[in-house]
Computed example of a mutant assay.
Amino acid sequence: MNWNTLVAASFFAVLNVAAFSAHADVQAPSQTTSHGTHLDIKKVVSVVDNGGNCGIVDARLTYLDSSGTQKVLDYSKFAECGNQGG
């Protein structure tokens, strides 16, 4: 194996690693749901909301379905207020 072949192989290896890393950061487009929609959730990755005030807030659920595909669900929920009920 000569020097040029080694350099070319290393260059393509670095490009493949960079492309794979960039692909891993891409999230699935979010979906919305309505009452009665069936969700195929095998594992919850994260749940975040915009919080801040009591009442209804927007939230985002990132999860893996039974086939291992990462999905994102946007929904509304009641905020978790620290001073509920007295």
Rank of each mutant, 00 (worst) to 15 (best):
Q27G: 14
A28R: 11
A28M: 12
A28D: 12
A28H: 13
P29D: 13
P29T: 05
P29A: 07
S30F: 15
S30C: 08
S30V: 07
S30I: 06
S30M: 07
S30D: 13
Q31T: 09
Q31D: 09
T32R: 11
T33I: 11
T33L: 07
T33Y: 03
T33D: 00
S34E: 14
S34L: 10
H35V: 05
G36M: 04
G36H: 04
T37A: 09
T37R: 03
H38G: 05
H38R: 11
H38P: 06
L39C: 02
L39W: 08
L39A: 01
D40M: 13
D40E: 12
I41Y: 08
I41H: 05
I41L: 06
I41A: 06
K42N: 14
K42S: 15
K43R: 04
K43H: 01
K43Y: 00
K43V: 02
V44H: 04
V44G: 02
S46A: 14
V47C: 00
V47Q: 06
V48T: 13
V48D: 09
V48W: 10
V48K: 12
D49L: 03
D49K: 01
D49Q: 04
N50K: 01
N50E: 09
N50H: 01
G51C: 08
G51I: 04
G51P: 05
N53S: 15
N53Q: 15
N53G: 13
N53V: 13
C54M: 08
G55L: 06
V57A: 08
V57R: 07
D58A: 14
D58L: 11
D58W: 09
D58M: 09
A59M: 06
A59T: 02
A59R: 04
R60E: 07
R60V: 00
L61W: 00
L61F: 04
T62Y: 09
T62M: 12
T62K: 10
T62L: 10
Y63I: 03
L64T: 05
D65C: 13
D65R: 14
S66K: 13
S66D: 11
S67I: 03
G68S: 08
T69N: 15
T69D: 14
Q70K: 11
Q70I: 01
V72R: 12
L73K: 02
Y75C: 02
Y75N: 01
S76K: 13
S76T: 07
